[in-house]
């Protein structure tokens, strides 16, 4: 992995006696979407806050695009889980201020703000106070505030929580555009479906440690499937008696078959074909959710 955009090297952070993040090591390449997954209290937000230099690690090293976290602040766009803006300021003034503290020249900031407000359909609201905007509009404004300074890295803490469907699509589009432009998107979530669809890489965290770090395909291959989903014509009660089968569960018309030890899924297919016509035969791929539950075990709520 040449020149990763983000490196964490044995990063540790404790709060009192609680080890929020424990010797976490991570390399995030350019131009990817990286998902931080884990139950509440796994250390996702603490990790993100350390990358952002909001809090300092007790030990370990963080490097962002070759810089230390304090020096990299202007390269990152951040959207925290708890969202909020200055309610009494106008949309334009909020963006001008956030641009200024991100080190943008004021002319660039106002141009970028105008372009983004236009894109999300808030151009007519630029002179209004934030508190006059609807909740959905405030969500849009929050995205704009995160991305309009043109960051190299986007860090989103639980970006999908509480979004209406339109804004959900909007933020996903923005994430994909960023990746296409060669930038890096890091986000935390506990919504597995979203992560499955969007992520190139996954960091699975539990109790401050990395439980898994890699691509989605890698994690699936680790969980060799022991189940198939089949649909056959006519009476399917014979299936239970086949030697390859240890358990059967009916899901609508389909059967979820658990293979017996040492059995091959292709042998099962042949056995089925000898008795009847097979409408569908699918090797069940474990979902992220299942892997998650399996890996994190009882601590997942």
């Amino acid at each position: 992995m040449p020149n990763p955009s983000l490196v964490l090297d044995h990063v540790t952070k404790s709060f009192g006696s609680l080890r929020a993040v424990d010797a976490l090591t991570l390399r995030v390449p350019h131009g990817c979407i990286y998902g931080f997954l884990g139950p509440n209290g796994a250390g996702k937000t603490t990790t993100l806050r350390m990358i952002l230099d909001i809090i300092a690690p007790d030990s370990g090293r963080i490097e962002i695009l070759g810089r230390t976290p304090p020096a990299a602040k202007d390269l990152i766009g951040y959207m925290p889980e708890e969202r909020g803006l200055y309610r009494k300021m106008t949309v334009r003034a909020v963006l001008a201020y956030l641009g200024a503290i991100k080190g943008m020249p004021s002319r660039d900031a106002s141009r970028a703000a105008a372009r983004w407000l236009e894109r999300v359909g808030l151009a007519d609201w630029a002179g209004r106070k934030v508190e006059e905007l609807s909740k959905g509009m405030q969500q849009k404004l929050q995205f704009v505030a995160t991305v309009f300074s043109g960051p190299q890295i986007l860090i989103l803490d639980e970006p999908f929580s509480g979004l209406d469907p339109l804004n959900l699509d909007l933020i996903k589009d923005i994430m994909l555009e960023m990746r296409a432009a060669g930038k890096t998107v890091i986000f935390s979530t506990h919504m597995m479906e979203q992560a499955e669809r969007l992520c190139d890489f996954i960091l699975l965290m539990n109790k401050g440690r990395a439980v898994f770090d890699g691509t989605f395909a890698q994690i699936q291959s680790e969980y060799e499937s022991r189940a198939v989903l089949v649909e056959v014509e006519g009476d399917n009660r014979f299936v239970q008696a086949l030697p390859q089968v240890s358990a059967v569960r009916a899901i609508g018309k389909r059967l979820e078959i658990e293979l017996s030890a040492g059995a091959d899924d292709q042998d099962l297919l042949r056995a089925l074909l000898q008795r009847t016509r097979v409408r569908s035969f699918e090797i069940k791929v474990p979902t992220l959710h299942e892997i998650f539950v399996h890996r994190v075990g009882g601590s997942h709520e």
Partner: peptide, 10 residues
């Protein structure tokens, strides 16, 4: 208003 985290990221 929770804007503080955004401010502190800058």
């Amino acid at each position: 208003s929770r804007i503080i985290e955004v401010i502190l990221s800058a």
